[in-house]
Design a protein around this nucleic acid. Sequence first.
DNA 1: TAGGCCATGTAAAAAGTTACATGATTTT
DNA 2: AAAATCATGTAACTTTTTACATGGCCTA
Lengths: 180, 180
Amino acid sequence: MKNTMYLQDMSTLTQTGRVVLGLVALGPCTGYDIKRISDNSTRFFWGASYGQIYPELRRLEDAGLIRSSDEPRGHLRRRVYRITRKGRSAVRDWLLDEETAFEFRDEGLLRLFFRELMTPAERLDLVRARRAWFEHTAAYFREIGQELDVEGDDVLRYGIELMKWNAAWFAELEERLTGE
Amino acid sequence: MKNTMYLQDMSTLTQTGRVVLGLVALGPCTGYDIKRISDNSTRFFWGASYGQIYPELRRLEDAGLIRSSDEPRGHLRRRVYRITRKGRSAVRDWLLDEETAFEFRDEGLLRLFFRELMTPAERLDLVRARRAWFEHTAAYFREIGQELDVEGDDVLRYGIELMKWNAAWFAELEERLTGE
DNA sequence: TAGGCCATGTAAAAAGTTACATGATTTT
DNA sequence: AAAATCATGTAACTTTTTACATGGCCTA
């Protein structure tokens, strides 16, 4: 009863459906490609696992948003997906939609919220650890950019700068904690 | 077979378990209190719904980390939870743990990632909309701080400043897009 | 010939949301 | 008297992860 909803309203994409359809819209690809590409790009703000990707590809094909063809490499079976006209229209509908999900979960921040359960020394350790982690992650993102040769990319730049901002914020908190 | 793991290893808390146990550690409270408190504090970086809270409270009590007592108000049944010695120790183990989850999902960023599927004008609209949203959210967080009278709180300040940083980042991108 | 990557998929579990049912108390 | 809030809970569902099974291709 609920399962048919997806087919009835083609423009309603699930969250995973958006990433998958978007990636197929960027160019023909296999389920494996989607995993690989998302793992070193959208993963940081929108991940996808095999358990979602393959079933989602079938759903999108059933809904007529993508089309698949068998394109084996030797005896290695391989199913390449391409976006359809309907699919392209659905991606655009989504891209121009107003509603925008934003959620984040930061266990470090949660720990900071519970800071009264820690001693001042422990609190300082936490703040230092978070700072170090954000610095490390900023460096890691920079490396990814160099490896993939997408250093000028706005989205990657966002990631790097966000990590740097966080590192600076925790550095400032560290100073306030040690200064008092 | 897997269900007993929770009981065997008491220091292993689920993600929801951490929020719930932490909130009980801050002071005795009911399931309803936990929902209310988390809804206007941790919600932004770690939410919890009734469907998680009540079962989690039972699990935590079974594991001996919290203890409950019936404290009705008139004829309104009411179950107040308090942290135990074991629970306090488990919270501290978690607070001092190295591993820290950090994940965020930003659909606006995902759309930006797929920017080549949009026209320049649409791209600009997206960037402007994101900027406005972050500005709006920063203002909303400030209001919360005023209402709850926790304006100096580091965690809230983090939220406000993060939203402001995002607004500024998108404002800068907007300038680059209009300038070229 | 071993290890790593390409490739497809599923089963089971875990995590989380939504919507409802129920009823008391407090505030307007 | 109505509306809001306090309070507990569950059932059904959706979403997501994890772990596994299977097997071909490529290269050192």
